[in-house]
Simulated assay, not measured.
Amino acid sequence: MAVAEDIKDRVAVEDARIPTVICDDVHIVYTVNGGGGGRGSATAALSRIVKRDKTGGAGRGMRRVHAVKGVSFTAYRGEAIGLIGSNGSGKSTLLRAIAGLLPPESGRVYTDGQPSLLGVNAALMNDLTGERNVILGGLAMGMSREEVKERYEEIVDFSGINDKGDFISLPMRTYSSGMAARLRFSIAAAKDHDVLMIDEALATGDRQFQIRSEERIRELRKHAGTVFLVSHSIGSIRDTCDRVLWLERGELLMDGPTDEVVKAYQKESGR
């Protein structure tokens, strides 16, 4: 009887969880230039496009890359999910598909709310000052001008951009890659998100900034939906995530509790 009650309680907990992202047998395939001599001119590029249009295929000298292969999982509100795997395993590609930036060749991606993708290459305008980018970035995320104004100082302080001078008033092109990545993260973290995806953002900056970032992710989990984190830092994954997806060569090898998946990954990779 006690066992039956325990099972009933666990089922009730499962039913109470709210799905935020469902990937159902997702395959992502894209076409890349296969390379070759004398293929860099505009005339050659135009010729390849015309040939591809006529044939309806990838065209000569082009190759299809099967970046994500039949990945299925369900993410729930309140989870922080790490994505690990070697370079080229499909982690960033999968996040772009969840964000709606890459259409799956087959399978489906369902999301509850608006996914937001934050990466070290997230678009900010290099010719504008950090201050203008904070304002435009906040507006682009759906914040009102009043909300941006209220959170402006918090965003700048969190990023640490002005710790060694008045850099926020300088154009973004004068920033180091680490400074730019910290500002991107700070802008994105100023708003609660339905689904927030972070691609390597915690790999930049000093340990103090990484700690602040990890604390902010934990806060986002309390008030928002789901956080996905792609990082080569196993320490950041352990400190931030309660669940991990391990991808290799586009396939989902393992999905489970952080310690369990990380141990298996480290044993296999020798890291």
Score class of each variant (00 low, 15 high):
135 I>C: 00
263 K>Q: 11
257 P>A: 06
41 S>D: 09
171 P>F: 04
99 A>R: 07
32 V>P: 02
53 D>I: 14
265 Y>E: 01
89 S>M: 03
187 I>C: 03
131 E>R: 14
25 D>C: 05
224 A>D: 09
212 R>H: 10
257 P>Y: 06
165 G>P: 03
57 G>I: 00
88 G>K: 06
265 Y>L: 05
94 L>T: 09
46 L>E: 10
268 E>Y: 12
56 G>A: 04
19 P>N: 02
116 S>W: 07
41 S>V: 00
229 L>E: 09
125 M>H: 15
198 I>G: 00
257 P>S: 08
53 D>A: 14
108 R>P: 00
156 V>P: 02
133 N>S: 11
207 R>M: 13
271 R>W: 11
141 M>N: 04
24 D>N: 14
72 S>H: 03
37 G>L: 14
151 R>F: 02
3 V>K: 12
269 S>T: 15
71 V>P: 04
232 H>Q: 13
71 V>G: 02
162 N>L: 05
102 L>P: 00
78 G>L: 04
13 V>I: 13
222 K>G: 10
166 D>Q: 13
16 A>G: 11
111 T>F: 06
243 R>N: 05
126 N>I: 00
256 G>A: 06
146 E>G: 09
103 P>C: 03
194 D>A: 14
128 L>R: 11
221 R>T: 09
171 P>G: 08
200 E>D: 04
1 M>D: 10
269 S>E: 13
41 S>H: 01
41 S>C: 03
90 G>E: 07
183 L>A: 08
152 Y>N: 03
83 L>Q: 04
127 D>R: 11
224 A>T: 03
91 K>A: 07
223 H>Q: 11
101 L>I: 10
142 G>I: 02
206 D>L: 01
254 M>D: 15
95 L>T: 06
132 R>H: 10
126 N>G: 14
196 L>A: 10
145 R>D: 08
182 R>T: 07
68 V>T: 03
168 I>L: 13
149 K>F: 07
153 E>G: 01
161 I>T: 07
167 F>K: 13
